[in-house]
């Protein structure tokens, strides 16, 4: 991902060591190190801080109100407290969100194309995972997309991993024939259990992150994160040329990637149409 950002800079004419220097700081997975690392960058008087995920951006925001900060993979920048609005972030922070309300609909569309017989899809969601408005937008967009696809939706809640068994029982008793999982953190960290439960209940499932497909899920459709890191360089460029971060709207993903696990398809006795396989960015054999 760091390389994608550097490539983005190169595309804009920056040459490391000639007209730009990048000071890297890596918390090595330890959240508590982030504030000190962000403070180091402030002490170095860098021109801009790139802090891709939420905790890094929050840590940077806490140590400077003046140095511009660019994030690259924040799900809900408004409810995280990074910006006041997507259109006009205000303050010294802006960047790219990895979430868009259309994502759920796009996932359903991919699922329907991969498994055309789907007519009742369960939507696994976690109440409270996002800000209220974001959550409402996500669920509404799912309904709209499902209607257009002729798929009936069943919304099933899981507040934590302890709710998974009950959630899958609800899906099977309502005769759901597929599942889409919303892009929340808990579902990512619990992907192995979700993948196992989907297999056990023979539910073709579309996930929003490819890691779930690497773990054995049937398919994923989600933002191309390398592209977002590349685009973060565009923000840096504009800021270095004088733009104020607070005036630069938060952008959402524009490129998405489709990953399919052929082994899982076979285990579910599914034949994924050739047209879908050809379109996939990766097919795991």
């Amino acid at each position: 991902m760091r390389e994608a950002f550097r490539q983005g800079l190169r595309d804009l004419g920056y040459v490391e060591g000639r007209n730009v220097v990048i000071e890297y700081r890596d918390a090595e997975g330890k959240h508590e190190r982030l504030p000190a690392l962000a403070a180091e960058l402030v002490a170095l008087k860098v021109d801009v801080i790139v802090a891709p995920p939420t905790p890094a951006a929050l840590a940077a925001k806490q140590v400077t109100k003046t140095i511009p900060i660019v994030f690259a993979a924040v799900s809900d920048p408004v409810s995280s407290g990074l910006v006041t609005s997507l259109a006009r972030p205000g303050g010294n922070v802006t960047g790219l969100s990895d979430l868009t309300p259309e994502l759920v609909g796009k996932c359903l569309e991919q699922l329907k194309q991969a498994v055309p017989g789907v007519s009742r899809a369960a939507v696994l969601w976690q109440p409270g995972a996002f800000g209220e408005r974001t959550e409402k937008d996500l669920l509404k967009a799912a309904e709209v997309a499902a209607r257009a696809l002729g798929v009936r939706l069943q919304f099933v809640e899981a507040r934590g991993p302890d709710d998974f068994d009950r959630a899958f029982s609800k899906m099977t008793s309502a005769r759901a024939d597929a599942l889409t999982v919303l892009p929340t953190a808990m579902f990512v960290s619990e992907r192995r259990r979700l993948v196992d439960l989907a297999a056990k209940n023979r539910l073709p499932t579309v996930f929003p992150y490819r890691e779930s497909v690497d773990a054995g899920g049937l398919m994923s459709y989600g933002p191309n994160l390398a592209d977002m890191y590349r685009r973060a360089a565009t923000y840096v460029d504009k800021i270095l040329k004088g733009a104020k971060p607070g005036d630069l709207p938060v952008e959402q993903p524009t490129k998405f990637e489709l990953v399919i696990n052929a082994k899982t398809a076979k285990a579910l006795s599914l034949t994924i149409p050739q047209s879908v396989l050809l379109r996939a960015d990766q097919v795991i054999q």
Partner: peptide
């Protein structure tokens, strides 16, 4: 010469698990 600071939670990890950690951290900071 312009200087860009780049701070990550974990360069060696895939991003999705990071997103998970990110949200936990965001909640902890609230």
């Amino acid at each position: 010469m312009r200087v860009i600071g780049f701070v990550v939670l974990a360069a060696s990890l895939a991003l999705a698990p990071l997103a998970a950690e990110a949200q936990q951290a965001a909640k902890a900071l609230e």
